[in-house]
Design a protein around this nucleic acid. Sequence first.
DNA 1: TTGTACGCGTTATCAC
DNA 2: GTGATAACGCGTACAA
Lengths: 336, 336
Amino acid sequence: MVKIKDVARLAGVSSATVSRVLNGVSTVDADMAEQVRAAAKSLDYRANGVARSLRLQRTDVWALIISDIGNPFFTAVARGVEDVAQREGFSVVLCNTDENSDKEARYIDVAEREQVAGVIMSPNMFGSDISRLTSAGIPVVAIDRPLREPVDSVLVSSGDGARDAVLHLFEQGWTRPACVTGPAQADTAEQRLAGYREAFARTGRRPARSLVRHGDYRAEAAQSAVASLLDSPHPPDSFFVANSSMALGALAEFTRRRLVPGKDVGLVAFDDAPWAKFVSPPLSVVVQPTYDIGVRAGELLLERVRRLTDAKPRIVMLSTELVVRESSLRRGRRRS
Amino acid sequence: MVKIKDVARLAGVSSATVSRVLNGVSTVDADMAEQVRAAAKSLDYRANGVARSLRLQRTDVWALIISDIGNPFFTAVARGVEDVAQREGFSVVLCNTDENSDKEARYIDVAEREQVAGVIMSPNMFGSDISRLTSAGIPVVAIDRPLREPVDSVLVSSGDGARDAVLHLFEQGWTRPACVTGPAQADTAEQRLAGYREAFARTGRRPARSLVRHGDYRAEAAQSAVASLLDSPHPPDSFFVANSSMALGALAEFTRRRLVPGKDVGLVAFDDAPWAKFVSPPLSVVVQPTYDIGVRAGELLLERVRRLTDAKPRIVMLSTELVVRESSLRRGRRRS
DNA sequence: TTGTACGCGTTATCAC
DNA sequence: GTGATAACGCGTACAA
């Protein structure tokens, strides 16, 4: 490893001068500066980030702790975060907790020990403990779900999105939409359920409790929920499912029963997915502004990291958009 | 921030003793050790990782640099890597390059500056420059694609997988399978194409050049490739596509033309995906041992990080498995 | 067994 | 404008 002293020796100056030149602080004699740059280049010198962090008591890296790396939602968010971080000279490292509190705790630990400049995280279902971070003075921004402690957050009004989706189902002429949502512990799942109920209220209907199912946000759970709903005495004629994985489960069950979405049954899902517009029929979805969530979270974090503000925790609330494709439509039987 | 000295003062010992107790080295008086642990706990002390790294000249973190975080293949690999890392006391941070050489270079830079213990990476299409890492003595393991420089690698015999998939198409009675593969620069794309050709050779056929298309591994490219193939004078009757995103494009085009996979047209895709078994009909795929790739890569890296071996670069070659679902079958027209 | 003191590589302060 | 030097927090060789 080549150190700053090596560069200094080669350039015939002190290490202090090398540091000044390379960091562009203070004024340095132009010729000398050139010498230093040449020496650094020829030795292929790179400052040791660890030593630098120790001295500066800070880092240029952000940690992005997310609860499910396989979820397209988070990968899109990650791109947004990365773009603002990079633009501002920070690097972001991803940490995947798989919705597991232990893993999450470990990563929070790492973030603290490694003195990251800031953390953006999607809390896990059971409520995350970020006290280590806050007491270490590391700014935190929450996304997707709120944190118990008040911190900057970027949230989505998913209740409204769910409501609009179900209203759309009603407008299409479906009369008994069911709701297949996530675990009762998950804040997002409850919000989407609330939106579903609000659609009933708005249209003067009484939501039947028997039309609601909770699952674990995965395809298999949704499939059996849909099956049980369909087998019930008074089955639904359409479905609102709370995320895209669950939509897959619903689709599978429809296929098994030879039910054609957009004709025999209605379907709207929360969350878009790369495959959603390619399946047959294309899936109607409530899309979240994923990339933008990442950007906004990055911007909030940036202000804290730079100590540009000490305002009390801010909440950015973003809206969803209903994208009607075909699965939610209600058409006469197609001729085959 | 509470430092080791604070703990020492509270416990009434020197900081050296605190360090010894907390790291479990040397022998320390039992009572004293207990004092120290109590003090550390009451102060909620955590060693400063940056200072520790500087002193030790090493870190406990691995960098996993992947070329596309949205690709389920990599997320599964990541889980494998994480599991062995965690078991061995390392943390892994993910870095997403989006197949972009600049981003990749930046992350390699970060990995070097932050002195990560080791790096596992999927090289980008154009050949990655890891010289910074190797010259800094940081072990590197390549996955998915080989690196120019000889390093430990975990690869998949995707040529064989492709060959078997196309042979399966022949066995089903399809006679003119087309190949929609990735960019010519991508090693994996070329291998899969070679496997496709080998299937023709094995069965004594002559592969028609006109049945091959290159794309960028994304759905849209595949869709137009499939369209142009279908519109050609002597169209194919089935398709082998080189990854799961491309399968989506193919599926979309089939739907547009009211072609039913598994009946009117055959389809096999390289790579599994969460949605593959839920679409209609379920997609036949060549699955890669994704999780295992991660585990093996982790194990190779571990040996280097621990300096357990200085053997010359090793290559682990893993096999694919053909999972026949329905899209590749050739059945008589179903009655509707 | 325990404490003192040094060094890891860098940047900032203070003289010059 | 430039150089010597202290300090960041930790682990360990060495002395006691």
